[in-house]
Design a protein around this nucleic acid. Sequence first.
DNA 1: GAGTTGACGACTT
DNA 2: CAAGTCGCCAACT
Length: 110
Amino acid sequence: MKTEERNLSFYKQVYDLVCKIPKGKVTTYGNIAYILGKPRAARAVGYALNALKKTETHIPWQRVINSKGMISFKGDIFRANLQKKLLEEEGIEFDENDKIDLQKYGWLSL
DNA sequence: GAGTTGACGACTT
DNA sequence: CAAGTCGCCAACT
């Protein structure tokens, strides 16, 4: 029984993985969940990032978006706007629909 | 302690 | 092809 992986909470693995995202690239919730061994646990991934506090902003949560390549928040459009701004500063371009080209900026974890 | 919610994704109808 | 439902893990009520 892989105690190593089990020892680390799913949400902690999300943080570690997000920290490994190279600058100028982005990834999706589903991709992270898939890497962690739960291809359908995208919800847990999203919640893990939501749990981040201002003091934990050292994690590039901004590089994590939904499978559509768009920023999808819930009621916090201010944060979504901030995320878009941060991504543009990293060199990531947005489409006319505020969408990111995952084929170009999508992070290849494998 | 149990139930519901939440930055989503994939499958089923 | 489009809409609806289930699944995942942790936190909040």
